[in-house]
Amino acid sequence: MSHVLVGYDGGAGSERALRWAVDEARLRHLPLTVCHVWRWPYPITYIDYEGVGIVKRMGEHLLDSGVELAREMAPGLQVTKRLKDGSVYPALVHQGEDADLIVVGSHETGELPIGSTALQLPARARRPVVVVRTAAPRDGRVVVGVDGSPSADAALAFGFEQAALRGWELRAVYGCWEPGAAPDGDLSLFEDEDKLRHACGSILERAVAPWRVKYPYVRVVTELVLRSPREALFEAAGGAALVVVGRRGAGGVEPLALGSTSQALLQNAACTVAVVPRAGE
């Protein structure tokens, strides 16, 4: 059954994620699943069964607190709980197989360590992953990275859905100043900015056009920027509520890795970031 899955560990970051997930479940009319993953903190060669029981019960109490908090935030919302043991991101990947999306928390500021769940999960999950750094404002803006690729189209689908659900403006941004952005690999376009703007602007408008038709009530702004995708999106993210990117853009080659722009945003963006896999990934 479809649901919204949120990882909860009791920290401030996971409470922000819980609030976002509660809003998401309420807006989508879906049940919410709160998941806590506990683990024995010592080497497997040292097993104290009484200690393991204590650690597991601590996890159960923490999970119950998260469920209670979610029900306080949205009375009447269907909330279920899942307690798992082991490593966090594989557990959330597995639990999220039938979810509409997965929500996790992150630090409000500062670069994420390479091994953090907020980086590993978006690289492996088959569902959109929202990494929450700030609370969702009442009036906000969704920024979506566009480059004409299937991954960017998946990001547009998710971004328009978010804008429609939350009543936010959508800003589609195409940073085209890199070799991979040239249509058909025509690098000569970089010798004439007008031709580059025309060619890449056409890609941008064609990519957004079907979603304008599907969501006619969403206010949309398109922006072509003669800068790298990373620079363009970081600039657009200032003051945004949410930035949405595909797992990999037009230059992605690794089948199970984040693109460089997606990873940079997850590590350094001040706002919440959603990473969306394309269909079939």
Rank of each mutant, 00 (worst) to 15 (best):
M1K: 14
H3L: 13
V6R: 08
G7R: 05
Y8N: 13
Y8K: 07
G10C: 07
G13W: 09
G13V: 11
S14D: 06
E15P: 08
A17V: 09
W20D: 04
V22Y: 08
L27V: 05
L27F: 07
L30T: 07
L30C: 06
P31I: 10
L32T: 06
C35R: 08
C35K: 01
R39V: 00
W40C: 04
P41I: 02
T45R: 06
T45D: 06
T45Q: 10
I47R: 14
I47M: 14
R57D: 13
M58E: 14
H61I: 04
L62N: 10
L62F: 05
L63S: 10
G66W: 11
L69M: 11
A70Q: 08
R71T: 11
M73N: 00
M73H: 04
P75S: 00
L77Q: 08
V79D: 07
T80R: 15
R82K: 13
V88K: 05
Y89N: 10
V93G: 03
H94G: 07
Q95P: 03
G96L: 12
D100H: 13
D100L: 13
I102S: 09
V104L: 10
H107T: 08
G110E: 10
E111M: 13
L112N: 03
P113G: 09
T117P: 06
Q120H: 15
A123M: 01
A125K: 06
R126C: 02
R127T: 11
R133F: 07
R133K: 15
A135R: 12
R141L: 04
V142T: 02
V142M: 01
V143A: 08
D147Y: 02
P150K: 01
S151D: 11
S151N: 07
A152Q: 02
A152G: 14
A155D: 03
L156D: 04
E161D: 14
G167F: 00
E169W: 02
E178F: 01
P179W: 04
P179E: 12
A181E: 02
P183T: 01
D184R: 02
G185D: 03
E191A: 12
E191W: 01
E193M: 09
D194E: 15
K195R: 15
H198M: 08
A199E: 01
A199R: 00
G201V: 03
L204K: 02
L204I: 02
A207M: 07
P210N: 12
R212V: 14
V213F: 11
P216Q: 12
V218K: 10
R219M: 05
V221G: 11
L224E: 14
L224Q: 14
V225F: 08
V225L: 11
P229I: 04
E231N: 10
L233N: 13
L233V: 09
E235W: 10
A236S: 12
G238S: 08
A240T: 01
A240Q: 04
V244C: 05
V245N: 04
G246K: 00
R248V: 01
A250L: 15
E254S: 12
L256P: 03
A257G: 01
G259W: 06
S260F: 01
Q263W: 02
L265N: 04
A270E: 15
T272R: 04
A274K: 06
V275S: 06
P277F: 01
P277N: 09
P277R: 10
G280P: 09
G280C: 02
E281R: 14
